[in-house]
Computed example of a mutant assay.
Amino acid sequence: MKTSTTTRGFLLALCTSLAASLTMAQAPQRIPTPNDTLKSPKVLDDKRAMIQIYAPKASEVMVGGDFIAGGKPLSLTKNDQGVWSVVTAPLKPDYYTYTLMVDGVRTMDPKNPTIKQGISSLENVMAVPGTETAFEDNKAVPHGEVREVWYQSNTLGMARRLHVYTPPGYEKGNTKYPIFYLLHGAGDDDSGWNTVGRAGFILDNLIAAGKAKPMVVVMPNGSMPMPPSTGMPDANMMNRMRSLFADEFLKEIMPTVEKTYRVLPNRENRALAGLSMGGFQTLDVSLTRPELFDYVGVFSSGFFGATIDEAETKYAKALNDPSFNKNKKLFWVSIGKDDFVMDANKKTLALLDKHQIKYQYQETSGGHTWVNWRQYLNQYVPMLFK
């Protein structure tokens, strides 16, 4: 009997389908787990947050984050289904970072895809909604754009990245804008201010409300490549990193950005600010090259460690320049009363006072956290380019 090609094809397909069905029938079926429907974090009606993770074989789970008063990690409790959970105290509406520790191993919350990236670590981010976060929320206003920009650094001999915010309407016009250089802290990279710092949304909202002038904001990577080492960097390493950043900033970042974007490259239209390490870098650059910036902001910072002892000599020219105050439209310093760098901050202010350098000082509640730094940015930006 002759079998047509079509019939043979049909029989082959039928056999293949039957074989696949038999294989699937014999394969062990996946057993559902509580992880399938688990949600974390969950913000409750009273603004407490529940953080959970499915880890049935774990013996200890803890969580640390910037929402915890005193910084001591919270212990999670395990139920009979293998789900560990903890409920925080009521939280003020804001954006918070946290990290889980499962049997001593730093672990991301697998149910929360929102993260903050650092140079060697990740953290989860959770939002506690409320009217208090309006200044930093993604609102229905005209939005600028944030670009990831790569450039070749001759100073460091490698490709480097920075983030650049351009205001609404930048692409459609030929207007030149003031420029604001915004520096992150130690452990972070150029993405910090754009992610957990929410700088783009803060600028959008201020500009839309008429509280700030449209501006270009440059967020560079202030973390310099370091040789392999253990422990905290010593004074020599701190000085090397300071000098390396200053060269990178002045010789690479500023020329690259000011040649690429439509900005007003003069002191009256330049601002510089940074948090923690970025505040230290801001002090260094603004006192070394005071002619470049009319607006300076220092968030939760100062001259750290031995750098305060040499500051009076290193920055003598600027500190003793009678025209320094006249040429600064704003020198703004802000810190939380519980910040662990308060001592460095006070010593730095004492040095400025000794040389009659004028500044505006603000001491807020809280400590060394993004909760404060976003607020400081929201306060600082409206004072620029007046």
Rank of each mutant, 00 (worst) to 15 (best):
S286R: 09
R48Y: 10
V296Q: 04
G70V: 15
S75V: 14
L11W: 01
P28R: 10
V333E: 06
G65W: 00
A127I: 07
Q362L: 08
S301R: 02
R242P: 02
D343I: 08
A58I: 07
R240K: 14
P167W: 01
N239T: 11
S59Q: 13
T133E: 10
I31C: 04
E123I: 00
D46R: 00
Y98I: 01
T23Y: 11
L319T: 03
N266P: 02
V333A: 11
G302I: 00
E252C: 04
A20K: 03
Q52T: 14
T155N: 05
V61A: 15
M237W: 05
A19H: 12
A246S: 13
D66P: 09
R48M: 09
N35C: 06
M101T: 13
Q356V: 05
G278Y: 01
D353F: 11
L76G: 07
M237P: 00
V381P: 03
A318D: 09
D46H: 04
T288W: 02
F67T: 14
P41C: 12
D321P: 02
Y361T: 06
K358Q: 15
A27S: 14
E148Q: 11
N112T: 06
R160D: 01
N138H: 10
Q117D: 15
Q379V: 11
T33S: 08
N325I: 08
V83I: 15
E145K: 12
L18M: 14
N35P: 02
Q26T: 15
A89F: 12
Y96E: 04
Q362V: 11
V257T: 02
S286F: 09
E123A: 13
Y181F: 06
Y361I: 07
D294Q: 03
R198H: 14
F324K: 01
N194D: 14
D190N: 07
F245N: 12
P227F: 02
D321G: 06
N194W: 02
Q29A: 15
P93H: 05
M277D: 05
T166Y: 02
A19Q: 07
G71C: 12
M224W: 04
I308G: 03
N174A: 09
Y380F: 15
M215T: 12
G71P: 00
Q81D: 14
Q52S: 15
W150G: 09
K347A: 14
R270S: 05
M1H: 05
P168Q: 04
Q375V: 09
D36N: 13
G200I: 01
D234P: 02
R8W: 06
E291R: 01
V63M: 07
G187K: 01
N372R: 03
V298Y: 05
Q29G: 11
N205A: 12
G71M: 13
L206Y: 09
T131P: 03
W332R: 11
Q360V: 06
V216R: 00
F299S: 07
D343V: 13
S59K: 09
S229K: 00
S300N: 06
K211P: 10
L74Y: 07
N236R: 12
T107D: 13
P167A: 01
G274R: 03
L44N: 14
N236S: 15
D309H: 05
M108I: 07
V128N: 06
D45N: 10
A273E: 09
R160S: 04
Y177E: 04
A246T: 09
M241P: 01
A159T: 14
S191T: 14
T37C: 02
L76Y: 15
K139F: 00
V43E: 03
G104M: 05
Q117P: 13
V61I: 08
L352Y: 13
S323N: 08
A271C: 07
F385T: 06
K329R: 07
